[in-house]
Structures are given as C-alpha cells and as structure tokens.
C-alpha cells in the first residue's frame, strides 16, 4: 500500500536528492530555516513569557529573560482545578461541533455539487452569504432565539451557533473539493447499483479526507479559542470553557499576565498535539485518497 502510495504521489524530493548537495538546495533550506525560526519563535516566546513576572512581561523588552523562573504562574493557572474542568468542557464542545460540522457540511456539499436539481446554485449562494457574518452582530438576535428555545446556559448555546457559523466555510471548502472529483466515479457506482447514501459513504467520504481535515482544523481553531459568544450565553461555572480561564486573569485594574501565559501554554498544548496528529492524517489521507478508487 505504502509503495503504491509513493508512486501515486509526486515525490520530487527523490529527484533532488539524487543530485546530492547543491547550491540551490542550500538556499532553499536556508530559507525554510529562517521561516521556521520566525514561525516557531512565538511558541518559545510564550514558554518564556509563562515563567516571567508581570513586571518583566510588561517591561516589553524583546530580548529579556526572566530573572528567576516563576513556576507560581502555573500553580495559579491550575489553582482550584478549574483548568481541568474547563478543558473537559472545551473538548466536549469542540469535538461535538467538529463532528456535526463535517457531517452536515459534507452532506450538503455533496448534494449541491453532485445532485441534478434546480436550486443547487441558490442554496450555495445562501451559504456563501454567511461566509462573512460578523459574530458580534448576531449576538442579540441569538440571545432572543436561545431564550425562547430554552438553551441558554446549556452546552447547546455554544455548540449550535459554533456549528452554524462554521457551516458556510465548511460547505465552501467541501464543495470546492467535490467539484474536482470526476463524475465518472458515481456513474460507475450507479452501474454497480449503489444508492446515493452508499455512494456518499463509501466513495465520496473516503476521498474527501483532505478537505475534511482542513475543515477540522479550521473548526478546531475557531471554536477552541472562542470567547465572546460563550461568555455571553454561558453563566454557569460548570459549563465554562478554556478561554474563560485565560480571561479570568484580567481584572478591572490589573492583569496577571504570567498566569495568562501559563494558562495559554496549558490551553495550547492539547491544540498543538491534536494539530500535529491531524496534520499527519492530512498527508496520509491524501495518499489514501489518491490510491483508492
């Protein structure tokens, strides 16, 4: 399997390697390196930040290291066990949202791009309109809706709008991808007597792994750090998510930056973990998609 994969996917590195050391390659990798430093530096910076005192952080010097390592920032961040239950809530909310977005958006995108029906374009246009709805401007109407369907102060008050707000971009990406898949595949499937649900499940979904992963990542990032909507619709401590923890260190006339840094590190760890896992899947997924069928 992996062999056929390496044949199917373009592997230009092989050709370059054959040439061995080259001037061009040095420049390219030098460039990669510089970019790597600039893009990874904030991670390191955040780690250093998270063990500094408030005064050191606020002094705003780029090069300064902490005089002594402030582990107390981490104990403050973990104080009262809030981190763990916020984390659990974030995981629940984010994963339910991700699953729903992918399911709903891929179904809709499939229908829009592959079914023969009149209103496909209009439906697509309606979805497109939602690409750029500023979340802040919907808070008030959403409050009224949620009040009336009695979901305020439940996880649904976060999950439902998170799904809804991710749908436009998810449909956009999924349908953009599905349009690139040749129609022959369902033609042959129909000839084999497969119904639409089977085509969707066993042909479309498997080849759609790359866009699904892209949608996963986008959804994850947007939902994991979301605060405005959650803060507006959730008042119960038991339901609060990680961003509440970050902002809890902001008081009226003081901010505990060190604890924020520590909390951000603790909050980013699972993200980075999940991300690197998903990133692995993207390439693998693409290879699998290319080979199957």
């Amino acid at each position: 399997m992996s062999q056929s994969a390496s044949i199917a996917v373009r592997e230009p590195a092989v050709q370059t390697r054959r040439r061995g050391f080259s001037f061009k390659k040095t420049i390219v990798f030098g460039f990669f390196g510089v970019l790597l430093v600039t893009q990874l530096y904030p991670l390191l910076w955040l780690l250093i930040y998270s063990v500094k005192t408030n005064e050191e952080i606020l002094s705003g010097s780029f090069f300064a290291l902490p005089a002594s390592v402030q582990w107390s920032n981490y104990s403050n961040a973990l104080a009262g066990g809030r981190y763990w239950h916020y984390l659990l809530n974030s995981v629940i909310v984010t994963s339910v949202t991700m699953v729903c977005v992918i399911l709903l958006a891929s179904l809709a995108a499939f229908a829009i791009t592959r079914f023969r029906w009149k209103y496909g374009h209009i439906v697509m246009l309606i979805f497109l309109m939602g690409l750029m709805i500023p979340l802040q401007s919907t808070l008030l109407p959403l409050m009224l809706i949620f009040k009336n369907i009695h979901v305020l102060n439940t996880r649904w008050a976060m999950i439902l709008p998170y799904i809804a707000f991710q749908i436009p971009i998810a449909v956009f990406i999924m349908s953009g991808f599905l349009r690139t898949i040749p129609h022959e595949i369902e033609e042959s499937a129909i000839m084999d007597g497969a119904n639409v649900f089977r085509i969707f499940r066993s042909i479309i979904l498997p080849v759609s792994v790359p866009p699904i992963m892209t949608v996963c990542i986008l959804t994850f990032i947007n939902v994991w750090n979301e605060y405005i909507l959650a803060a507006t619709f959730i008042s119960k401590e038991a339901l609060k998510t990680l961003p509440f923890g970050v902002y809890s260190f902001v008081s009226q006339y003081s901010v505990n930056y060190g604890a924020i840094g520590a909390f951000l590190v603790l909050g980013a760890l699972p993200v980075i973990l999940v991300y690197f896992l998903l990133a692995e899947k993207i390439t693998k997924g693409m290879v699998a998609g290319a080979v199957k069928g």
């Binding site: 709903l104 179904l107 829009i112 023969r116 496909g120 309606i126 919907t138 436009p168």
Partner: peptide
C-alpha cells in the same frame, strides 16, 4: 451532475445543514 434523486433525498442531505445555518446565522443577519 449525474445523480438524479428524489426530493426527499435532497432534503435529507441539505435540510439539516441549511436549517441550522438559516436559523442561527442567516436569520440574525
């Protein structure tokens, strides 16, 4: 598009997504 399907099938694929989106994003706008 080759897939000719019934209205119900289209509804089953599109409606859940569309309703949620229209209710919570489109209507507020």
């Amino acid at each position: 598009n080759v897939l000719k399907v019934s209205r119900w099938t289209i509804a089953a694929f599109v409606l859940p997504c569309l309703l949620l989106y229209v209710g919570l994003v489109f209507a507020p706008i």
